Computed example of a mutant assay.
Amino acid sequence: MKKLIISRHGKSSWELNVRDHDRVLNQRGIDDGHLVGKHLKEMNIKPDLIWSSTAARALQTATIVTEYIDYSLSKLRLNRNLYTFSSDELKRVIQSCTDDVDTLMIFSHNHGITDFVNRYGNKAFDNVPTTGVVQLIFDTNQWSDITRGSTQFYVFPKHIR
């Protein structure tokens, strides 16, 4: 059994004139990161491995959330391929995970996240919002074999404010 916890980065700021990859979180994105991180701690979420997109807003979200779930930042891995907006590319990245990891958490981007969870989970979402988290479970022991799984839970900031 493989568990995937997939998180969309927090709300980003458009105030600075920077390239997309370098956009940081705005105050709401920071606040929602803390809110969701606290909620995941209460749920006793313990990923074996966390990967983050190299985009500033995704890494910043991952950094905030890891504070709450007692995951060492030294173990957090950046994955440039998670800076994608495609569910097919997202699947390829996830399938590259080593099989000794049972629970993988990733921080990435939309529309890839919404498309992925709708395609591989059993609950449909119009949109996974910023700082939204969805956990999928796959009935396999190999990441390379993931097909349609089931949606175990989802946490959206507006539901826990």
Rank of each mutant, 00 (worst) to 15 (best):
L4M: 09
I5K: 08
I5Y: 09
I6Y: 06
I6W: 04
I6F: 08
R8F: 05
R8P: 03
R8G: 03
H9E: 05
G10F: 11
G10H: 08
S12I: 13
S13G: 10
W14I: 10
E15N: 14
N17T: 14
R19Y: 02
R19V: 12
D20R: 12
D20L: 13
D20C: 12
H21F: 15
H21E: 12
D22A: 14
R23I: 12
Q27G: 03
Q27Y: 07
Q27H: 11
R28W: 05
D31E: 15
D31I: 09
G33R: 04
H34R: 08
H34G: 04
L35E: 02
G37K: 08
K38C: 09
H39W: 09
H39F: 14
H39Y: 15
M43F: 12
N44Y: 11
N44I: 07
I45G: 01
K46S: 14
D48H: 10
W51H: 07
S52E: 02
S52G: 06
T54C: 11
A55R: 05
A56T: 14
A58V: 09
A58T: 12
L59M: 13
L59C: 06
L59Q: 13
Q60Y: 09
Q60W: 05
Q60P: 05
Q60R: 14
T61G: 05
T61H: 03
A62W: 06
T63P: 00
V65Q: 01
T66G: 07
E67D: 14
I69E: 00
D70S: 14
D70W: 06
Y71W: 10
S72V: 03
S72T: 04
L73Y: 08
S74D: 15
K75W: 08
L78C: 09
L78P: 01
N79E: 14
N79T: 02
N81P: 00
N81V: 00
L82A: 10
L82R: 08
L82V: 08
Y83T: 07
T84G: 10
T84H: 09
F85C: 10
S86W: 06
S87P: 05
L90G: 08
K91W: 00
I94E: 00
Q95K: 15
S96C: 07
C97L: 07
C97G: 03
C97K: 13
T98F: 10
T98Q: 14
D99T: 08
V101I: 15
D102V: 04
T103E: 05
T103D: 03
L104N: 02
L104Y: 09
M105S: 13
M105L: 13
M105A: 15
I106E: 01
I106N: 04
I106P: 03
F107E: 01
S108M: 05
S108F: 06
N110C: 08
H111S: 12
H111K: 11
H111P: 14
I113M: 07
I113W: 01
D115K: 13
D115E: 15
F116C: 04
V117D: 01
Y120T: 01
Y120N: 02
N122W: 04
N122G: 07
V128P: 00
V128Q: 00
P129D: 06
P129G: 12
T130E: 00
G132V: 01
V134Y: 02
F138R: 09
D139I: 08
T140Q: 05
N141A: 10
N141E: 14
W143G: 11
S144E: 13
D145G: 03
D145N: 12
